[in-house]
Design a protein around this nucleic acid. Structure first.
Length: 158
RNA sequence: UUGCAAGUACGCUCUAUCGCUGCCCGUAAGGGGAGAGGAAAGUCCGAGCAACACAGAGCGCCGCACGAGUUAACGGCUCGACGUUCGUGAGGGUGUAGUAGCGUAACAGAGAAUAACCGCCUAUGUCGGCUUUCGGGCCGGCAGGUAAGGGUGAAAAGGUGGGGUAAGAGCCCACCGCGACGGCAGUAAUGUUCGUCGGCAGUACGCCUUGCGGGUUGCAAGACCACGUAUACCGACAAUUAAGGGUUGCUCGUCCAAUGUCGGGGGGUAGGUUGCUAGAGGCUGUGGGUGACCACAGUCGUAGAUAAAUGAUAGAGGCCCUGCAAAGGGUACAGAACUCGGCUUAUAGUAUUUGCAGUGUU
RNA sequence: CGGGAUGUAGCGCAGUCCGGUUAGCGCACCAGCUUCGGGAGUUGGGGGUCACAGGUUCGAAUCCUGUUAUCCCGA
């Protein structure tokens, strides 16, 4: 039985980690999403993160609304951390942004199992951000398809 | 029946699968139950709450301003008064403290306020001319009188008619309008088809004056715990009278002393707990009040997240639109962030009460 | 979430406090002159729903109210 849950622990919440991901991560675009991901194979990531934070001061993309998860002690649940974002620039109304974030989260929740297995095999961890960057408001079907494509792409890059 | 006006209530429902955030039960597996709005929005007012001395004085600044009521409070609400404006009407919009003094009123116009440009008059005074029956008469000028007429303007000193006059004028009179006092009605604003009297006022805005209210900053307020560090370094300040500071526009008052206070300048954290949801609470009934609202009784338990949960998908059913039907399409505005009371703005549609105007039938 | 500012010609800004005759300045644009031609220079010209909607006033870019867009600040 696959695990379809998505508790808060699996969401990317640390400001430090987010900055690092946007600086060093690999980014791509599958309509309507822009995505950013960062793979880490080493175990000594905590020291890494500290160094990265000290290096740089100025933050980029200030009007991005972020959804994230805290770093927990459990290493297993930290295999993948994800955040979803819908910029205010494209969607003015809060209820619209909520709806799109929820659809994206749902699509991720139902389709991330293959990716997770692959990560487990390789012993790597992954951080992903999905940014909905279009003015149109797409249905669940479109979003679901796009999310699957993104997860496939990330999986192939491992 | 058509079109309107003013309100009031509601504003999708159910099932399945997979989830999210608190809470309760359980050692655990798991189970139970809760989970967006009328505007949650804008942040335009008013409060609670918190810190600053359980916050003081004066000045300044800001807000409000018909009357009565309502309320914890308000710039809100209710009922009422008057003016103005839109509407055939039901009704809707908007305004209303005081005026002693000062300022401004472009352009146009003679003039924008102790008005004489054109016009009218020459009774009165005076000068000149003509004439004379020597009383005076006529013409012109000057002093002067005149707010009727002209045109300008947003606004020109009550209106119409008559008398009166040299010409005119509330100068006098009639009616209309206005104001004051008294009576009457009303708690009052105010009204008055009552009585008596007064010839009778510029207008708008601002300064100003009066009354009432406002200390400042806001839950990123504030409190605690953990982690980490630096009492780095530089500068200012005093021994009894002051500097500096204590979240206030200024002044005062008051408080702060050497392991000190403050400033400059660096360093660390980016976590948790609390504030955090029972409150001027909702609903029902009875009573009071025109009403806002109030009193009493009963009853209910109703989000608390933290880059932020309250959902996604599928199916079925309502409702609306198109269509003969089959079928197709639509189902608004919008997402809690300390909490209340209002206001404002957005909103597919549905139901309903009262009232108005028109048309038809009887 | 809380607090604050701005919107005027294609672009950048005055004017708004304290309302008044025709909303002004620079760059850009158009035309003439100049040059063999262009640039520079010079002379003239066009271009504005003063963000939007109500209100106050005789009269509103200016005062008042609401809406909308953009920007800034607060750990």
């Amino acid at each position: 039985m696959p695990d379809y849950t998505l508790p808060r622990a699996e969401r990317l919440r640390s400001l430090k980690a987010i900055r690092r991901m946007f600086d060093e991560g690999h980014s791509g675009f599958v309509y309507p999403f822009r995505y950013v991901s960062l793979v880490e194979r080493a175990d000594a990531k905590r020291a890494d993160a500290k160094r990265a934070d000290a290096e740089r001061a100025d933050a980029e993309s200030p009007d991005v609304e972020m959804t994230a998860a805290v770093e927990t002690i459990d290493a297993e649940s930290r295999r993948v951390e994800v955040m979803f974002s819908v910029p205010k620039k494209f969607h003015k109304r809060a209820n619209r942004r909520n709806l799109l974030k929820r659809r994206a989260r749902e699509a991720y929740r139902l389709h991330r199992e293959p990716l997770r297995e692959r990560l487990q095999q390789q012993g790597a961890t992954l951080r992903v951000a999905l940014i909905y960057s279009t003015k149109e408001c797409h249905t669940y079907k479109t979003i679901s398809y796009a999310v699957q494509r993104i997860l496939e792409q990330i999986s192939q890059r491992l």
